[in-house]
Structures are given as structure tokens and as C-alpha cells.
């Protein structure tokens, strides 16, 4: 992890202790994001992407969550060593987050102007009038039509896309250094998705904030991120610059994800003939697995994969993959 990283996470582990047993949601994740960078984190539901983000923000309730890491450093500070109050001061001020569900992520009983103004009031201690004015400016920035007159509107009066714009304005008002976006476009119509993504890129350019973009959609990552981390069952399985990941994916899971992107004309990212799916499901977090976690769903798996967990191998420049095929390339089946 480099010194100039804005956020660096080393060996993050998150466990949930439940009556049914202890489950490991995040198992030894290393992440670094530089100031102003856009990092995509990709994986299926339940692979630990969101939990990682929530752990960084300090939004996981402990118990049941148990969070351990060698270090979680943000702008030179060790986040896990801070008091709850110190972490609260960072949330919304230096690290902001937007969520998947714009329909339920806004408080139904409070006007949107007030909800957008709240971080300004609490973090920058602006007066009500100043905060209101700045909130209106931000609602204009996220292209809410007639923003100033809509400060008193309630969430139910807005469409899903508009609500997500409000969420973005609310996250950006204090000009955070890092914005975590957890599936920001998943719940939206396809046409709206593109608008929201380009809006986020625009605001990122303007404010220079770093963006941690969590998604299961590689298409979203291709349009937005410069570097991609692929997660599977609580671990990073592949990490590469975005162009390289799309051109030379190494891990069978990444290849599976790429093949499952529908492309107009029936061609997919790997030029294969038909849309593929990855058989099976992400293992439940309470399932203890020997060997590679993907082995059960992997078309190339052999004895070694089922017995020993692979480390993260260097594949190329800034390219890593957690797969035994690195040392046993002959095991890769030809049709893949």
C-alpha cells in the first residue's frame, strides 16, 4: 500500500456472530484508493462489497459485527483507533456514502431541502439560512429542475432518479474527499442509470473527490472506474487497471462475470457466442471452505484448488489474481 493512498485497508476481516454460528463476510481484504481516483469493486450479492464499505464508515452495528484489520488508514488517521464521536465527524464530512435504494434511503417525513442541508449544519455549523442556500445550490448541481422551489418537497413527490440525485447532493454538500457509492444505479431505469453515472463523473471532476464504486455491473465499472477489484466470498480474487481487466481477465470468476454481460448483437466481452451464467451461488458466509472458495463453481478446478487456498498471485503490472492457474496454466480448459 502506497503512502499517498487516501484510504488504505490492510487485511480487513469482518465477522458476524449470530445464533446460527459465526460467519465471515470479509476475509482479509486489502484495498487502497488514491486521492481523486475511481476504484470499482465488483462482485455478486453477498460477496462482502457493501460490508467492506460499511466497515470503513463505521456503520456496522457491533455486535453482531466484529471488525478487525491490520490497518484502516484514511488521510493519515487510523480509523479503527478513533472514538465513535471522531468517526461520526468523518462521516458525511470527509467520507460520504450513497446507497442502492433511493426509494427508501430518504426520510419520508422530512423535506428534501432539510435533508440535504443537515450535513452542512452538523459538520460546517452553517446557519439554517446558509445551509438552505447551499443545499439549493447543490440540488441545482445535481440537475433537479427548479431546485430552489423544491426545497420543501418531500421524497414521495420525486421519482427514483430524482431521489438518487438528492442522495448525491446530500453526500456531496460537504465536499468529501471520498465518496462511496454502493450500487448507485442498480435500482434505476437503464436510461436514468446513464444520467446518474455521468452526473457522478461530472461532480467528481469538479470536486476532485475519490470514488469507491461498488457494483455487480461490470458495464458501470467500465464507464467510470480506472482500477477494478473483483471480490468473491469475502476475498479479493482479482485486481487490475480497468482496461487490462476487460482485455485480459485472469480469474475464472472474472471471466464468468464478463461473459454474463449482455451486449447488443449478442457479442459479449469475451467474444463468446452466447450469454453465459456462472453456475451455482456464492457460498453462505457461515460455510467454512477448504481450498479455493470458487472451486465449487469453477470449470477448471482440480485437486489442488479443493485442498489449498490460493494466494493473490502477480499476473502482470498492477494485476493480481487469486488462482492456482497462475502456476498451473496447463489446467486451464481450452474452451475458456
Amino acid at each position: 500500500m502506497t503512502d499517498e493512498a487516501l484510504l488504505s485497508i490492510e487485511n480487513l476481516r469482518v465477522r458476524f456472530r449470530t445464533p446460527e454460528g459465526t460467519g465471515t463476510a470479509v476475509d482479509g481484504v486489502d484495498l487502497a484508493i488514491a486521492a481523486g481516483e475511481t476504484l470499482g469493486v465488483v462482485g455478486e450479492s453477498g460477496c462482502g462489497k457493501s460490508v467492506t464499505a460499511l466497515a470503513v464508515l463505521g456503520l456496522l452495528a457491533a455486535p453482531p459485527a466484529e471488525i478487525e484489520a491490520d490497518a484502516v488508514r484514511f488521510a493519515g488517521r487510523d480509523l479503527l483507533g478513533l472514538s465513535a464521536e471522531e468517526r461520526r465527524r468523518i462521516r458525511g464530512r470527509e467520507i460520504a456514502m450513497i446507497f442502492q435504494e433511493p426509494m427508501t434511503s430518504l426520510n419520508p417525513l422530512l423535506p428534501i431541502g432539510r435533508q440535504v442541508a443537515e450535513p452542512l449544519r452538523v459538520h460546517l455549523e452553517l446557519s439554517a439560512a446558509e445551509a438552505r442556500d447551499l443545499a439549493a445550490t447543490w440540488l441545482e448541481k445535481v440537475k433537479i429542475p427548479d431546485a430552489r422551489r423544491r426545497l420543501g418537497d418531500f421524497p414521495h413527490q420525486l421519482s427514483g432518479g430524482m431521489r438518487q440525485r438528492v442522495m448525491i447532493a446530500m453526500a456531496m454538500v460537504c465536499r468529501p474527499r471520498l465518496l462511496i457509492a454502493d450500487e448507485p444505479t442498480t435500482a434505476l431505469d437503464v436510461t436514468i442509470q446513464a444520467q446518474i453515472l455521468s452526473l457522478m463523473r461530472e461532480l467528481k471532476e469538479e470536486t476532485g473527490t475519490a470514488l469507491l464504486l461498488i457494483t455487480h455491473n461490470l458495464g458501470v465499472v467500465a464507464q467510470t472506474a480506472s482500477r477494478v477489484v473483483v471480490m468473491y466470498a469475502g476475498q479479493i480474487v482479482e485486481e487490475a487497471p480497468v482496461a487490462r481487466l476487460f482485455e485480459e481477465p485472469f480469474h475464472p470468476y472474472t471471466r464468468g462475470l464478463l461473459r454474463s454481460i449482455p451486449v447488443l448483437g449478442g457479442r459479449t466481452g469475451l467474444e463468446a457466442g452466447r450469454l453465459a451464467e456462472i453456475p451455482g451461488l456464492v457460498p453462505a458466509i457461515t460455510e467454512r471452505l477448504a481450498g479455493c472458495r470458487f472451486a465449487g463453481r469453477c470449470p477448471h478446478a482440480f485437486a489442488l484448488c479443493r485442498e489449498n487456498a490460493p494466494p493473490l498471485f502477480a499476473i502482470g503490472p498492477a494485476h493480481h489474481a487469486r488462482c492456482w492457474l497462475q502456476v498451473h496454466p496447463e489446467r486451464r480448459r481450452r474452451d475458456d
Binding site: 464508515l57 456503520l59 461520526r88 465527524r89 468523518i90 462521516r91 458525511g92 464530512r93 460520504a96 456514502m97 446507497f99 435504494e101 427508501t104 434511503s105 430518504l106 426520510n107 419520508p108 417525513l109 422530512l110 443537515e118 450535513p119 452538523v122 459538520h123 442522495m167 446530500m170 453526500a171
Partner: peptide, 26 residues
Amino acid sequence: REDYIRTARAKGLRERTVIYVHALRN
């Protein structure tokens, strides 16, 4: 457990505000 309470916490609001302004009214 609602999403908007998570949003309120993500904004860095004080716990008092989260409970009495965002949660209690609902």
C-alpha cells in the same frame, strides 16, 4: 432498521438527531 436511518448515520448526524428527529417521528 430502515434505510433512511442508515443514511442519517452515514451523514454523520449525532445519535440524538438520528433517534429523535429521524427515527422517532416515523
